[in-house]
């Protein structure tokens, strides 16, 4: 193991592409972890999955037009969020079904477009599962820009975000634009998805959004701490996952997600208060807690 770590560090020092990959993965770990906390507590995990899949046609169309794939992704991501809201508000279809309909439709459109473009350099596999080792300097700056924007927005709107997540009716009553906050989060979610495209890919973004946040959720009772812990687990998974990916020559995105999942499993069983093991040990005493 030590040998492997040394080899990883050696490669890291000598190959700029690996340095880019590491920075990009760390950034993605942070922003996914932070946005993910809001997604989890608002019960929007499925929405996160939807938006991340829905950026696919945007990316492909942008590629066809020679435009920035960032713009394309954000447009289709936000359009999907709006369409989901529109369907669930204007028919008897419930939101989870609306999500299921919209995101598969968008994703299918993306796949059709890509297969129609066969022979070009759009690599479906890399968009779907990421290829962090192909991250260029420009990509890295771009990810950094998104990261700063996303974190900045969350710092500025921390209190409205917290209040509207915790108690929507009070947030509305005191005049917060709850609907706009929702769409702002959807926008940030599309940004984050695009930033994560190369690191973990569209399919696995949702894991980076949900798993580190869920792990943090089991470990703390304060929202601010949850944000930091979640970002930390995101970064830890990114670095460790990249390490395994380089040493054993396996998919980077999938290794990162696997590390995050292992962290979750550990917290699930052994978290001091919420862990299954300690809950079972404590059970008889805890039964006095009021409903």
């Amino acid at each position: 193991m030590i040998e492997n770590i040394n080899s990883f560090i050696f490669q890291l020092m000598n190959y700029p592409y690996l340095q880019n990959a590491l920075f990009a993965a760390v950034l993605v770990g942070i922003i996914c972890g932070v946005i993910g906390c809001f997604i989890i507590l608002r019960g929007m995990a499925l929405m996160g999955d939807a938006i991340s899949h829905a950026v696919l046609p945007g990316v492909v169309i942008a590629y066809m037009l020679g435009a920035s794939f960032f713009v394309g992704a954000v447009i289709t991501g936000v359009l999907t969020a709006l369409a989901i809201g529109f369907i669930s508000q204007n028919s008897r279809i419930k939101e989870d079904s609306a999500i299921g309909i919209m995101f598969t439709a968008m994703f299918a459109a993306g796949v059709v477009l890509i297969t129609a473009l066969q022979g070009t350099s759009v690599d479906l596999w890399h968009i779907l599962f990421g290829n962090v080792l192909a991250v260029s300097r420009t990509d890295l700056y771009f990810t950094l820009g998104i990261g700063i924007f996303v974190l900045g927005t969350i710092v500025i709107f921390y209190r409205p975000l917290l209040l509207s997540t915790f108690d929507e009716t009070m947030a509305k009553a005191t005049g917060l634009p709850v609907k706009w906050i929702h769409y702002m989060l959807m926008l940030l979610l599309s940004f984050v998805t695009v930033a994560s495209l190369q690191t973990v890919g569209i399919i696995l973004v949702v894991a980076m959004l949900i798993t580190p946040g869920a792990t943090a959720y089991l470990l703390t009772e304060r929202f601010s701490v949850m944000l930091f812990l979640s970002a930390f687990f995101g970064v830890f998974s990114a670095v460790t996952g990249l390490f395994f990916s380089v040493i054993y020559d396996v998919s980077s995105g999938a290794s990162i997600v696997l590390v995050a999942s292992v962290l979750f499993a550990i917290a699930f069983f052994f978290a001091p208060k919420q862990g299954l093991v300690f809950k079972m040990l404590k059970k008889p005493k805890n039964e006095t807690v009021a409903p």
Partner: peptide, 30 residues
């Protein structure tokens, strides 16, 4: 609006939400 305080029905709140008592009360100042 700033002069309106609202106390929700208890079943509309997610009691697993990671906030402490003092954090909730502080929301009244937001």
């Amino acid at each position: 609006r700033k002069q309106v305080a609202y106390v929700p029905q208890r079943n509309s709140i997610d009691w697993d939400f990671p906030v402490r008592v003092e954090d909730v009360v502080l929301m009244g100042r937001f």
